[in-house]
Design a protein around this nucleic acid. Structure first.
Lengths: 143, 143
DNA sequence: CTTGATTGGTACGATGTCGCACTATATCAG
DNA sequence: CTGATATAGTGCGACATCGTACCAATCAAG
């Protein structure tokens, strides 16, 4: 039963990722969008290693993702005046515009979903999902 | 709000995949386990292209996954007496044993979860998750 | 200050995902 | 039966993920 929950979550993740990536330009994929979104939510000037930790990916993966975004002009690097080892990451106007457009596009997809599912049932899951994520996150540290 | 639901689902998928893969031997990863599980649930002798469709992955990816499982002795191929273009895939005893062991190991992880979350809240999400998956699946075909 | 340990970042290699192109077999139209 | 089309599978190349090793900057102990 619990097993089924994770199975469904895995499938939904795959489907939603596919939907998202269909709306992204060029060679951008989900992690690129996640970074743009993170920079909007948490503010510009983030440090790569902190984003790697937030996303729980290796720092090498974050380097690669940021390199892709920078090469296409969606973010830019500036030096970190506090710590010479690290950079800071800043959205460009192009990056902001893309994120806005994609969010708007996803809204249409959501509207379609809500024609077929009760919105309250969906958002009603949110507290349990958050709780589940928190517990799993804690268990990860414990071992 | 809906956006948050997908975000949490994405994180939970990542955490659960990491948990699963920590229990897999050798170079096996989540898709390998998914195949073993599928063969138990749906029965031996499946045809690769059908599994690719079931998992909604390209057939090249399924070829690669099956090659890995076969190389390590968890599945074996036999010819398809009905259709000379395709193979059939069969679990070995080793494959069955691995799947059993991993399921048992995951049970322990679930037990830990249930100490911190209400089981009813978790399984209560299942119908909505299934519905959500079905609607997204249908939307995929429509466009 | 000096020196050893720590930390942020990246190059590189191994492996995974997947689109394209190709082969072999099957199916369908006539 | 024959030729055109469709389908199952795989080799290959492009790109993603991530562990290891390494460099440069920082920090900590004395």
């Amino acid at each position: 039963m619990l097993f089924e929950v994770f199975k469904e979550i895995g499938i939904i993740e795959q489907l939603s990722r596919t939907q998202l990536e269909a709306r992204l330009p060029d060679g951008l994929i989900a992690p690129h969008f996640a970074v743009l979104n993170h920079l909007i939510n948490r503010g510009d000037g983030a440090i790569p290693i902190n984003m790697a930790r937030a996303f729980q990916v290796p720092k090498t993966s974050m380097t690669h993702t940021l390199k892709g975004l920078a090469a296409k002009g969606y973010v830019e690097f500036r030096e970190n005046p506090i710590d010479g080892r690290s950079k800071t990451v800043w959205l460009t106007d192009k990056g902001r515009a893309l994120r806005t457009d994609v969010i708007a596009g996803l809204g249409k997809g959501f509207a379609h979903l809500l024609e077929h599912i009760d919105a309250k049932a969906l958002t009603g899951m949110l507290p349990t999902l958050v709780r589940l994520r928190e517990v799993m996150d804690a268990a990860r540290d414990e071992g």
